[in-house]
């Protein structure tokens, strides 16, 4: 077993990366179950597919968390997570 101490894993970061990996697996399964994935134009006026919407959701989530940490320092991060989920729902529905 290789020594991975230099990677400095913590349970929290492991859960974080596992969640992203799980999202990718879920997207693959979604693609298998419902292959209809034609590009569509939403409120941003750009053609997006599911993968683009996931990318936008993750990028938005990252910036929402940064803004939360920068502007509302001290408040629990669950608020940022909740906001990110709402944003992701909006992206998948309207973008």
């Amino acid at each position: 077993m290789p020594d991975l101490a230099w990677m400095a894993w913590t349970p929290e970061t492991a859960v974080f990366f596992a969640a992203i990996a799980l999202l990718l697996v879920l997207m693959i399964l979604w693609g298998r179950l419902d292959p209809r994935n034609a590009p569509r134009k939403g409120i941003l006026g750009i053609a997006t597919q599911r993968g683009d919407r996931l990318f936008l959701s993750l990028l938005s989530a990252a910036f929402i968390h940064l803004a939360w940490i920068g502007l509302a320092g001290g408040w629990p991060l669950w608020g940022a997570l909740l906001l990110s989920v709402v944003c992701a729902a909006g992206v998948f529905r309207f973008v």
Binding site: P39, R40, K41, G42, A47
Partner: peptide
């Protein structure tokens, strides 16, 4: 690209 993009 995406010439077939659908705008609901």
């Amino acid at each position: 690209g995406h010439p077939q993009a659908h705008n609901p």
